[in-house]
Design a protein around this nucleic acid. Structure first.
Lengths: 215, 215, 215, 215
DNA sequence: GATGAATGAGCCTTCATTCAT
DNA sequence: GATGAATGAAGGCTCATTCAT
């Protein structure tokens, strides 16, 4: 005799929290930050209104933990990708850029949720540290890679500026994907950022943004 | 001895509307979209609450006309800059990029207001057409310039992708300026976008992003 | 050389007041009491907003003078009709009832305006005296007529009750005309009240409510 | 010694709704339609302001459901009375008229609330169907009774007109009770409508409006 | 006299938070 | 733990009234 397949009435603390955070992301994507309500989050999660406050104390805390969740997820994603790329700077850059467009990270919903937070970050110091999804670690890593590649000659500029250019192109294209979702594909978005890499490091990427000498 | 220049009780319709729109921009910059209230807009303008609805009918309309105002201002700015740059594609590209960082357009306040709208645009079709500040005309112009420069050889890619890369870098760096206002200067931000131009069109810009052969 | 036929810029005080009162009646008919605004009254009259307060000091005063205007008009109407009917009680009753349905008095607009006031009268002592459109004079006159007709025998009841029955039937059918304007004609409404007269004083009215022996 | 019977914090949805509707009737009676506020309704019910919107979504809906409630109550009242009157048309007419003046239905508060709605009905299609409290069923029943009584001879008119005369007298006298509450009693009001019945059907009612041959 | 922009009080509505069950 | 009714502060909107021009 098996248990019926309906969702268990009691989930672990952690599971409930994650369920609510995912619902928050979904609501942010559809309604934007300004019009997202706890009632809607609860409805989306299929839970009662009171439970939200039980698990998160307040709306501010729910939202800021949702941002932390996205931020952590994002960080783990690029770090995993870079770790798997091996020691070559060019391969690491390739992996770093491509990581942003993996299907788990770059879903329309998650992009839209990020955007919602960006719009609010300026006026909320609490958010500012997390938005910049691309945080201090990321910046440092990217600059390090760029410095290594620039050392080989070619583009006559400083590593921090080049790294910043690649980074903001990557952030900007996320905004663009959200603002005009029909204009081009996620694949093309990725190629656009890789085009920057090609331009800065022409020896390492070909005209389509692929690694010239992949490992 | 003349009467002190206290603000006139009555202003033309157009002047009042602009006054209120400027106040809206200021409030959006400080408070973000979600927490901007009409009371604060009125207080900032030094006017009464009721007057806002008198001139704009509703909060939604005030905000959407503020966005239209920013959008119009932005468009006129780059079009003026390009017109003054003369016929050379490289000079036009240089002007187009620099136009975004002129002190009238790129004030912290205006950047922050743009960001506030971007965060909401996804969930408001009315906003979507205006955010993209860089609208169809801009995109067309930039692609045209890039096509002309690519025709001279050098970077092996398509004009639309190169144009998009430069455009999203420019948008992304605005976000960055708002999110981390202390990290670097507006001048450095501009140099970062120009660095992209240098990378794509190395014959036309030098290592600091200046036009190699300015007219 | 003649003056152009546009409305004169300056009208006499009295004419302006009447113009605004007629506009008030029109607005009450369309919007009801609760949603009638001074702006709409001014627009309907084709005058500026400020002028309403200039002529009537306050909204309450405008509305209460509108009621007084309707009440006065109503009173003059039935008194003129009765005066013209001659001395016969039956002819006077006939005239009194028919007076309510003359085209000048019983327009849909005026009926609706009356109704709007009735709904508010209960909670406004100021209105209560005027609504009852059918005021003390009317009641006294009607009772007098009924007493005279009852004295001739027939219906075995008291004059005040009979008079009241005829009066409330007449008031009630006005409500009905407003509430279900498509159900029957004003002519049929009049015949309905006359049917009451026929029932109470069968010797004086025929089966269709016409005076049996008209002067 | 038991805990004092203070009102329960939670009531069933239906009970709360009814409580709020009764409070609405009370407020309408005192303040009229135009000046009735939700704050006052909530205060009258001894509940918080927000709860009204929680149960009714909006003021408009609260008011229209209050009207539906009154209308339903009214309909059930006369239908019960007629059902208890037996098959005789005269007895049914007697019951139908008297039903309007039963103490539960004809309280000053309820009369005043009806009046408030009548004043607004003209400009609100939503209200129009319910005001006429005396709806299609009522009219049909009354006409049927009148047709049966007229068939026995006496008054020379059509049933629909006679029925309408009795109906509008009944409606008109409610207005009168509200407009001049001190003028006469509810008992006398009832006798007035019964006087109409006597006049139209003299064989069935005596001079005081009582059934001549009661079952 | 006439105009219409400006004011501000009051109301409806939303929604985060609380809490009895 | 879980629910959802209840609360109340805050904000948008309406509109009578005022007043500079």
């Amino acid at each position: 005799m098996t248990t019926p397949a309906k969702p268990p009435r009691k989930l672990s603390r952690e599971a409930r929290r994650e369920q609510l955070i995912e619902a928050t992301i979904a609501v942010l994507a559809v309604r934007g930050y300004a019009r997202a309500t706890l009632t809607e989050v609860a409805d989306t999660a299929g839970l009662s209104h009171g439970l939200v406050n039980f698990h998160f104390t307040s709306k501010d805390i729910l939202f800021s933990e949702t941002l932390a969740y996205l931020s952590e997820e994002y960080t783990q994603n690029w770090q995993r990708a870079v770790a798997m790329a091996g020691p070559s700077p060019a391969a690491q850059l390739d992996a770093l850029v491509r990581a942003d467009f993996l299907p788990e990270i770059s879903t329309p919903q998650r992009l839209a949720a990020w955007c919602a937070f960006w719009g609010e970050a300026q006026s909320r110091p609490l958010y500012q540290e997390k938005c910049g999804s691309k945080n201090a670690d990321y910046i440092e890593k990217l600059e390090h890679i760029c410095a290594a590649l620039l050392a080989e000659g070619g583009y006559p500029g400083k590593a921090d500026r080049v790294a910043r250019a690649i980074r903001v192109a990557s952030e900007g294209i996320w905004i663009d994907l959200v603002t005009q979702p029909e204009a081009y594909t996620t694949e093309e978005a990725m190629r656009t950022v890789l085009a920057c890499c090609t331009a800065f490091f022409p020896g390492h990427f070909d005209g389509d943004g692929n690694l010239a000498f992949p490992a």
